[in-house]
Design a protein around this nucleic acid. Structure first.
Length: 283
DNA sequence: AAAAGTATCAACCGCTCTTGA
DNA sequence: CTCAAGAGCGGTTGATACTTT
């Protein structure tokens, strides 16, 4: 039968909101709340439909919204929650303080999904190449137009990207360990004796450190601990010596570290895995 | 420097769910 | 119980900024 539109749209503004419109909406809601979205625009003096007002408020103007780049912890949380809940963006958003369903949905489609998908190898390489030109140990992607667009409305962003507060703490992946950055949920813990031998083989590490990786079965690393989810990543497991990996060839290991240090690093790292620990004990 | 390609994100659309008469 | 209105949700689009060629 079809239902009537939420409001008469003829003569109403559409598209991006102006500062004046934002201010009208903020002022009205601050004084009166938003009991009835449909009636709100008229009362607030806005030439918008109620739906548009609600969206603008919930996704952008609400004072408790945290804007700015997603932290690694937030991204990991989204990935995990998406695995549990699917595309329940509003439910996911309800577990991430200050984030909106729309924002999470956008991040998922533009960033996280690609990270998890089995991308065509060429695309992965392209991305890696792109990023290689600006390798930085910072995990924060550079956001572009939002930073410009937001400059008038970003008053709620205090700039602290590390203050994520999980509203609920029932997520097992959200340990407070200092090493949680690497506790990828994609860890498969699959390792065999051959793989283990590689990690204990000096020649292997010589290849790794010299950049001569032709003999290396790179597939083993991702299988062991989930590395490989991203092209670049810092692994601050060892507080004094993070290692930057480029998984599209493992181009770069910390040049300041000796081969022994590097080997120790990985053995220590991999030894965290219970299965590997067991294997190590049998060596 | 310009064109083409790509990434990002605010906003919209249409559907479902909820509520109340 | 039924139905209509309002609210909410997820998918999609389009404008814009950025990057590459």
């Amino acid at each position: 039968m079809g239902r009537a539109p939420c409001c008469e749209k003829v003569g109403l503004n559409r598209g991006p909101w102006t500062n004046e419109e934002d201010q009208l909406l903020i002022n009205y809601i601050n004084e009166n709340g938003h009991g009835n979205w449909r009636a709100l625009p008229k009362k607030a003096g806005l030439l918008r439909c109620g739906k548009s007002c609600r969206l603008r408020w919930t996704n952008y103007l609400r004072p408790d919204i945290k804007r700015g780049n997603f932290t690694k912890e937030e991204e990991d949380a989204i990935i995990q929650l998406h695995q549990e809940l699917g595309n329940k963006w509003s439910t996911i958003a309800s577990r991430l303080a200050g984030r909106t369903d729309n924002e999470i949905k956008n991040v998922w489609h533009t960033h996280l999904k690609k990270r998890l998908d089995n991308q065509p190898e060429e695309t992965k390489r392209q991305r890696t190449r792109k990023r290689s030109k600006k390798i930085d140990t910072s995990e924060q992607p550079v956001k572009n137009n939002s930073a410009i667009k937001d400059n008038n409305n970003d008053k709620n962003n205090d700039g602290d990207q590390e203050d994520i507060i999980m509203k609920e703490t029932n997520s097992p992946s959200q340990s407070s360990e200092t090493t949680s950055t690497v506790t990828s949920s994609s860890c498969t813990s699959s390792i065999n004796d051959d793989t283990l031998e590689k990690f204990l083989d000096d020649d292997f590490w010589a290849d790794v450190l010299s950049g001569n990786l032709s003999n290396m079965d790179a597939n083993h690393l991702p299988q062991v601990n989930g590395i490989g989810i991203e092209e670049h990543k810092t692994y601050p497991l060892l507080p004094t010596s993070p290692v930057l990996l480029d998984l599209d060839g493992f181009e770069y290991f910390d040049p300041n570290k000796s081969q022994d240090d590097e080997m120790d690093f990985w053995c220590n790292y991999l030894a965290r895995d219970g299965e590997l620990q067991e294997l190590l004990s049998n060596v």
